[in-house]
């Protein structure tokens, strides 16, 4: 009876090992396709397929948001702290869209600008009370040499 139990234990272990190995191999080979968006650096390195609808993600550069006063058109720079891509978008931005915020835009590259048809805000993992955020901002303003991103 002991021996049979050991065999069954071995079978269970083999199922787990086999499934894990095949999952790792499948995920490694799919790696590029599972990523939701390209970074501005990948766009500059030419890793992005031309004329295809893609998503790019990054931080909105502070002071780069230009709104057209007559319509909903807006343009802003997107960065991954290394490279910058200019995004143009015609539509309503999500509430969380602001300078310094992470966003994901889908659209196409046209003449080295990214023309977006959808802009989504990416929320980070920090949850803070407003008054604490205010005091951090105040402390940050006293030391203006900190990074802009």
């Amino acid at each position: 009876m002991q021996a049979q139990r050991k065999t069954r234990l071995l079978i269970v272990a083999m199922i787990l090992a086999g499934v894990s190995i095949s999952a790792v191999l499948a995920l490694l080979s799919l790696n590029e396709n599972i990523n939701l968006f390209y970074s501005p650096s990948q766009v500059h390195a030419g890793e992005v397929p031309a004329d295809a609808t893609i998503r790019i993600g990054g931080m909105v550069v502070k002071g780069s948001v230009n709104r057209n006063p007559d319509n909903l058109e807006v343009s802003f720079d997107l960065t991954d702290t290394a490279k910058v891509v200019t995004v143009v978008y015609n539509g309503i931005l999500p509430d969380l869209f602001r300078e310094g915020q992470g966003i994901v835009a889908s659209g196409t590259m046209q003449n080295s600008r990214f023309v977006a048809d959808q802009v989504l805000a990416k929320h980070d993992e920090t949850y803070m009370a407003p008054e604490i955020s205010e005091s951090i901002k105040a402390a940050h303003d006293r030391q203006p040499e900190e990074s802009d991103y």
Binding site: V12, I15, L16, V19, S20, A23, L27, N31, I34, N35, L36, F37, S39, G57, V104, L120, K122, H123, D124, E125, T126, Y127
Partner: peptide, 25 residues
Amino acid sequence: LVGLVNIPIIHYSVEWWNTLHQGST
């Protein structure tokens, strides 16, 4: 048992790939 492999994938998905969903808080 076969589906168990999905559990670490769910947990680490936000670290292994870039996603819209934020990381662990």
